[in-house]
Design a protein around this nucleic acid. Structure first.
Length: 265
DNA sequence: AGGGTAACCCGGACGC
DNA sequence: TGCGTCCGGGTTACCC
């Protein structure tokens, strides 16, 4: 095996390092609720299985194995690290999957919010999810349809993974700003033009976020550079980058919600 | 159906 | 310096 640099990675960078490899061993060091089914079953069943493919569904990473599928949700602070056997264990390593060629896939997660599943059918985990916003099937007409069938405020709707899947608090606030829509608006009260703007905003915000490898705030919430593109998120009290008005932060649906009262209607 | 709340976590920021 | 308290990310459970 050639020299393998340690890679702090995002999902789409994992595949080339693990594809077609066979799992020889698995350690889970935080045995409370991290793994489904039980940690014991997880560790036992995963050994001997070969990686067939790596894909993504909303915020879930799906690794199809010979027999089962391994699903990973990083939540906020989770990280996947590809390394060789020389890497010393780190303080927040929660699970380590060893491959027969001595390389490893380490799940590191300071906040212990991330989750792992080993299931026969990935739909058991992801079956409840709504539309994939970057999929061609997610059209303006589809968005208009799901918005029309709900009576909630748009902020809560966008966070609901069973409707449109994959937006978290940051991307919801950023998408609503870019669409010029206040987070308190009702889903079934948006004009045709606003739905079009929202559809475009959801996609572009995710595309930029993915291109930037996500956002970093500090050493825990670390990733890429999307924070440089924040228009409203965590900018409360600061001037709007478009109109100069102070960005407002309010509590909506138990979540910090950031918006510009001038740019968003 | 929608909304509100609590729980799960813990490093960091803040106040005293 | 040191200690206590609160925050926030995503999700589920549960209640009204």
């Amino acid at each position: 095996m050639p020299e393998l640099p340690e890679v702090e990675t995002v999902a789409r960078n994992v595949e080339p390092h693990i594809i077609h490899k066979t799992i020889s061993r698995c350690e889970v060091s935080w045995p409370k609720t991290i793994a489904t089914p039980s940690v014991e079953m997880f560790q036992k069943k995963i050994v001997g299985q070969k990686v067939n493919s790596v894909s993504r569904r909303a915020k879930f990473i799906t690794i199809r194995l010979g027999q089962d599928s391994l699903l990973i949700h990083l939540r906020m602070s989770g990280d996947l690290v590809i390394c060789n056997q020389d890497r010393a264990p780190q303080p927040h390593d929660r699970a380590t999957i060893h491959f027969s060629d001595e390389t490893r896939l380490v799940f590191n997660d300071p906040r212990k919010f991330g989750r792992l599943w080993l299931v026969n059918d990935p739909e058991v985990v992801t079956g409840h999810l709504g539309y994939e916003p970057l999929s061609p099937s997610f059209t303006v007409a589809i968005l208009a349809q799901v918005l029309g069938s709900s009576h909630r405020n748009i902020k809560a709707f966008l966070l609901d993974q069973t409707q449109v899947a994959g937006l978290g608090n940051i991307y919801t606030d950023e998408a609503l700003f870019r669409a010029g829509i206040l987070p308190t608006r009702k889903t079934n009260d948006l004009s045709k033009k606003e739905v079009e703007q929202l559809h475009f905003a959801i996609r572009s915000v995710l595309e930029v976020g993915i291109a930037q490898n996500g956002a970093s705030f500090d050493w825990v919430y670390r990733g890429g550079n999307f924070q440089n593109n924040f228009m409203v998120y965590q900018r409360n009290g600061q001037p709007c980058k478009i109109c100069g008005e102070k960005i407002t932060k309010a509590r909506l649906g138990q979540r910090g919600t950031h918006y510009c009262l001038n740019c968003q209607k």
